[in-house]
Computed example of a mutant assay.
Amino acid sequence: MSQRGVGSGLRVAAWVLVPLGLVLALGNIGYFLTHYQGAIVMSEAMEPTYRPGERLAIERIDAGEIRRGDVVLVHVPDRYQGRPVLQRVIGMGGDHVVCDGNRITVNGKPVDEPYVMHGEVNPTTGPYDVQVPDGRLFLLGDHRANSNDSRFFLDEQSGSVAASAVLGRVQKDFTAPAVLVTLGGLGIVLTLVGIGLGIGGGHGRTEGPAAARGSSGKSCMVMSRRTKNQRLATVGCVWAFVSLTRSPGARAHYDRRREAGDRHIAAQRDLFNRFMGMLFYRLQNGHIYDEAIAFPQPSPELAAAVA
């Protein structure tokens, strides 16, 4: 087969792989970022179900999707020093929750709790009898002897927290997040391979004195490479732009770059480079995406130095 034919075949493959890769990468990674986040267990309050240092995938859900027994990540600004915590949903709006010290009943029905630490239902506080207000949740930790949960705030709307304070629910099955990340990574690989084939196809056209130079005397291969680089840059800008409305960490990173003097395009390019580095690291090590690790809050001294 002639070199011209080979180059044409490579270019056709590139035109197929690049769009396919972009659809897989942007679709799956975008879905993952909008529907899931990562979290690391920081305390013993949910033992033995989840232990300190364990990595979890958190599925973002609406208040209407919460069910009794769910383990949720909740953020209550006036509790727990403003930090998100993991707790289990025991009662929902309108529920009557009673504990006599030995067992918990919800609306008169005993709650089976095989997950509690050492079978201790209520080892550190006295009995309680509460009516959960509408739109709120009564939450407990699985390690009842070491959990600062709704039992300790009974004078604040029966210890309940607003259902809107739930950031997400712990995903018991990692299959869906793993598939999304894998397909997203595959999409990036296909995109890069397609770009590489396109460059190779352009290189094939440059072989021979007549094909190597245009009327201007410039190399066609250089022009082809420039085109592929522009495509990759365009993909990066789209990815970064979409993340600004979907990822609080990405938005904060972009804003810091802008405050430091970067133009809009430069700040987006820096954000895309960060995404690529994070994706490579997490695919290589098999880690789930974690917003807090991907975009840690800078210390005040570092923020002042950057500004």
Rank of each mutant, 00 (worst) to 15 (best):
R274Q: 11
V116D: 00
R246K: 01
G141H: 03
R225N: 06
I288K: 07
F174S: 07
L26N: 04
L244N: 14
E113H: 00
V121A: 07
T175A: 09
P298Q: 12
H75C: 05
Y254L: 10
S243D: 00
Q171R: 13
M276R: 12
L86V: 08
L10I: 01
R4L: 04
L244K: 10
K228W: 15
L190V: 08
M1V: 11
V72S: 02
R67S: 14
A162C: 01
V238W: 03
G208H: 11
E301W: 15
I40G: 00
T34L: 12
N229T: 15
G185Q: 08
P248D: 03
A266T: 07
G187A: 08
E47P: 00
L167M: 09
G53R: 13
D155Q: 15
A212V: 01
Q157C: 08
R282W: 13
D142T: 11
D290W: 10
N229M: 15
M1Y: 08
V71R: 01
R246N: 01
G53A: 08
R88F: 00
L24S: 12
L167A: 01
A176F: 10
L24G: 14
L22G: 14
V222T: 10
R231Q: 08
S247R: 10
E47L: 10
H96P: 04
V235A: 14
M92V: 13
I29F: 12
E207V: 13
Y80D: 14
M92T: 12
D112E: 15
T34V: 14
I188W: 06
D95M: 09
P177N: 04
E207G: 07
R251I: 00
Q37P: 03
L190I: 09
H203R: 15
I265D: 02
F275C: 01
Y50T: 02
Q81H: 08
T125R: 09
V235G: 04
V161A: 06
A233C: 01
F272N: 02
G21A: 06
K218S: 08
A267N: 04
L232C: 05
G69T: 08
Q268K: 13
P48Y: 04
R205H: 10
G69N: 05
P19D: 10
I40A: 02
H75A: 14
E65L: 05
G21M: 00
G101E: 07
L192E: 04
I199Y: 09
V16N: 04
N146V: 06
L180D: 00
F241L: 14
V170D: 11
Q3F: 10
R257D: 05
R136D: 05
I29C: 06
L283S: 00
P296A: 11
G9P: 04
H143T: 04
L302Y: 13
Y50V: 03
A162H: 03
E156W: 05
A25P: 07
Q87V: 02
D149A: 07
R274V: 04
R11N: 02
P110S: 02
I40D: 01
L279M: 15
S150D: 06
G7H: 01
G184Y: 09
D62G: 15
V71I: 06
N229S: 14
V23G: 15
H143D: 10
L26S: 07
L180Q: 03
S224P: 03
T105W: 05
